[in-house]
């Protein structure tokens, strides 16, 4: 089951990257997120799974689709046709290196076993308080950046108001 979900995750990620239609790419990315959320649920990481499912598979997909809809007419960018040949070779080489090296690499990491106590909320609020402060800061920075990027152009708005005023007179 776990292996099947991981294969689905990697397969839909590849589809998201290689698909020519941006809408299909965004939907493939959302399906990959659903596979990842299921993997997280299987590993008992319920909170991370819920976040992945609601925020990444939901919110980010909506953001992608809105952007694609707003830029639809200009969205055709001619990607190189060489991806058809290069990507399978790249992927095979990566998978081969992965199989040969990963076990050895992970074996070099010292085994430090620690058993946690307490609930998730205790760990999140007591031990990772600064992470939460950082998250709030990141969200505010994002909101301010989006507001700054979508603010109306000052000069254009002024000229438009002035011309409308002339017409009324």
């Amino acid at each position: 089951m776990h292996l099947f979900l991981l294969i689905g995750l990697v397969a839909f990620s590849i589809l998201a990257v290689l698909s020519r239609d941006l809408l299909k790419s965004a939907i493939s990315l959302a399906v990959a997120s659903i596979f990842l959320a299921l993997v997280l649920f299987l590993m008992n990481a319920v909170y991370a799974g819920v976040f992945e499912l609601s925020v990444v598979a939901g919110l980010i997909t909506v953001l992608f689709m809105t952007t694609i809809a707003l830029t639809r007419n200009d969205g055709d960018v001619a990607e190189s046709k060489r991806h058809r040949f290069i990507f399978p070779l790249f992927f095979l080489a990566l998978a081969l290196i992965d199989i040969l090296v990963m076990k050895k690499l992970l074996g070099q990491i010292p085994a430090i076993q620690s058993s946690e106590t307490g609930t998730f909320s205790q760990v999140l609020w007591n031990q990772r308080t600064f992470d939460l402060v950082g998250q709030v800061g990141a969200i505010f920075a994002g909101v301010l950046a989006v507001l700054a990027l979508f603010r109306p152009d000052g000069e254009k708005a002024h000229k438009k108001n002035a011309s409308e005023g002339d017409r009324h007179e």
Binding site: E52, F120, L124, Q135
Partner: peptide, 16 residues
């Protein structure tokens, strides 16, 4: 798992 989950949530929020 608890610390890992809280870090994963931080990654997701920053990513958004």
């Amino acid at each position: 798992l608890m610390v890992a989950q809280s870090l994963a949530i931080t990654v997701i929020v920053v990513d958004v």
